[in-house]
Design a protein around this nucleic acid. Structure first.
Length: 495
RNA sequence: GGUCACGUGGCCGAGAGGCUAGGCAGAGGUCUGCAAAACCUCGUACGGUGGUUCGAAUCCACUCGUGACCUCCA
């Protein structure tokens, strides 16, 4: 009997038992990228963290509808009237059309995600494809009297929202009256009634390319309305999980809740989940700080912080070794360690696949109990707010048993057939299906090594040690180790 | 200034009042023709100062340090 699944809810600031609104269905919305630049390590963290959440929920037999949006319009440089749309700005810099920019970086993002073995969303809507939905929601908020029109732009009235019984700031723990106001000279703020008000719709200036007709004139939607409109369209006015990076908690998610309360009288989602940030040299890795490493740079080794290319799975391991709500301090040493750790787990999986089922005994073996305990620990760890770090620890405990059986330091008599079966399915389920690891290397390479291994075995049998040594060193240069052990010779990846 | 986190062995990191994860790197050993891989063993860490307690890395207070959000950012 496993403990129930607990999820830390940012809204209540505590772990809560996960209860979907309509089991077995689960609706999960994740704030996707604004496609005006290449994805960096921070994007990967969010994607991987919630990829594992989706994978685990599916493992628990939930039917998950996973929606991850693409922001291709409305995300301004600053939340200011004169702030330039991010996508439009990049288009100007690259001298292409905004939709070209959006397409380019959407493609790049999807490619990166595929490399990281992040499962594609069930639905991947873009903001520009949902203008009518957003206009509809804005209209509804205006009708409730919680938004006002100024010169072709529509703003959400935060003060009014509080006056009619809502509480702005529930998610971020902010109290409206105590929020810092007016300490920075933000131009363009004077059109708003209050500094905390945010744009639902912006009037397009004559030069603005991305524009749509609306009841308030030509313009484009504000950033926050997109997620609320899209989320409620595909998952319902109230759905189970809304996820995103911690830096989106305020103001983005706070505004989303306000919009949903105003339009639909819901908090939009029951559980609000936030992944923590990636830091480098003690500071947050962020777009605006310019200290980020893009995923392409990471995979190509093309960055001053990196000495060589690193694999997508090394990064995935890095991410999963840390709990998603803790900051992840990125360093070269950490990546190197992660890659080695990943390699060992994968090599263990191949060995596990080779372990002969018929070697195990029918009766209970000496290590059965510890196998069952570690397998159960994997589930317990995931049920405790997706503690992937703990899962990895358990997998390493299992790995020692796997290696021991294969290399002969543990006798087959130590494990029963049923325990070996549990070991095999659990290890595979967690490593491959839930944590989402896959082989970095090409399968065709492995076929070639198999041929060479045959030559090695022949030379070895004939005591041709010169040839044995030369095959070993040649393969070693290719990142492959040959291993001699009681059950013969085999090979595995070294890096 | 407000709000909130965090500080764990060389590095990355779980944990969270007694049973003191795990990975990487390092040392020793077993195995091996020699290696490699694997396995075994080892380092006894929790910013500082007080306090609560039979007992604290874990709770409390103070303190030092770092960071996040309050402006776009996964």
């Amino acid at each position: 009997m496993q403990p129930p699944l607990l999820i830390y809810n940012s809204l209540t600031r505590q772990k809560e038992v996960f209860k979907p609104l309509s089991p077995p269905f689960v609706g999960l919305y994740l704030c996707g990228p604004t496609v005006y630049g290449k994805a960096h390590l921070g994007h990967a963290r969010s994607a991987i963290a919630f990829d594992v959440v989706v994978r685990y929920l599916r493992q628990l037999d939930y039917k998950v509808r996973f929606v991850r949006n693409i922001t291709d319009v409305g995300h301004l440089e600053r939340d200011l009237d004169e702030g330039e749309d991010k996508v439009a700005k990049q288009a100007r810099l690259e001298e292409v059309s905004p939709m070209e920019v959006a397409q380019r970086y959407t493609n790049s993002y999807r490619k990166n995600m595929e490399m990281l073995n992040v499962l594609p969303p069930s639905i991947e809507p873009c903001a520009s494809g949902h203008i009518p939905e957003q206009i509809e929601m804005i209209t509804s908020i205006i009708q409730k009297g919680l938004a006002y029109l100024v010169d072709g732009s529509v703003y959400f009235d935060v003060v009014k929202y509080n006056q009619v019984g809502h509480t702005y700031g529930l998610l971020s723990g902010r109290i409206l009256s105590e929020m810092r106001v007016g300490t920075r000279a933000l131009s363009g703020q004077e059109v708003k009634k209050n500094a905390a008000d945010f744009a639902l719709w912006k009037k397009a200036t004559p030069s603005h390319i991305m524009r749509w007709p609306s009841p308030w004139g030509e313009g484009f939607p504000g950033w926050h309305i997109e997620c609320t409109a899209i989320g409620s369209k595909y998952l319902g006015a109230q759905f189970d999980i809304h996820a995103g990076g911690l830096d989106l908690l305020f103001p983005h998610h706070e505004c989303e809740i306000a919009q949903a309360q105003a339009a639909c009288a819901t908090n939009l989602a029951t559980y609000w989940m936030h992944n923590n940030l990636v830091t480098i040299d003690g500071a947050k890795m962020g777009k605006s700080l310019g200290n980020f490493i893009t995923l392409d740079e990471f995979f190509e080794g093309n960055h001053p912080s990196l000495d060589q290319p690193y694999s997508p799975m090394a990064l995935r391991f890095c991410m999963l070794q840390t709990h998603y709500r803790s900051t992840l301090s990125f360093s070269l040493d950490a990546v190197k360690a992660a890659h080695q750790g990943y390699r060992k787990l994968m090599n263990g999986w191949y060995i596990l696949c080779k372990l002969q089922q018929d070697g195990a005994v029918e009766e209970k073996g000496g290590i059965d109990d510890s196998i069952y305990a570690e397998c159960a620990a994997c589930y317990s760890a995931m049920n405790d707010d997706f503690n992937t770090a703990k899962v990895l620890a358990s997998l390493y405990h299992l790995l020692k048993k796997i290696n021991g059986l294969y290399y002969g330091t543990l006798a087959y008599a130590a494990i029963s057939k049923s325990a070996l079966h549990t070991l095999t399915t659990t290890y595979t389920t967690f490593l491959i299906d839930i944590l989402g690891f896959k082989e970095d290397h090409q399968a065709t390479f492995a076929d070639g090594v198999e041929v060479i291994l045959t030559l090695y075995k022949k030379a070895k049998a004939e005591n041709g040690y010169d040839q044995v040594e030369s095959i070993r060193s040649a393969l070693r240069k290719m990142g492959v180790a040959i291993k001699d052990h009681h059950s013969g010779a085999s090979w595995e990846y070294l890096s």
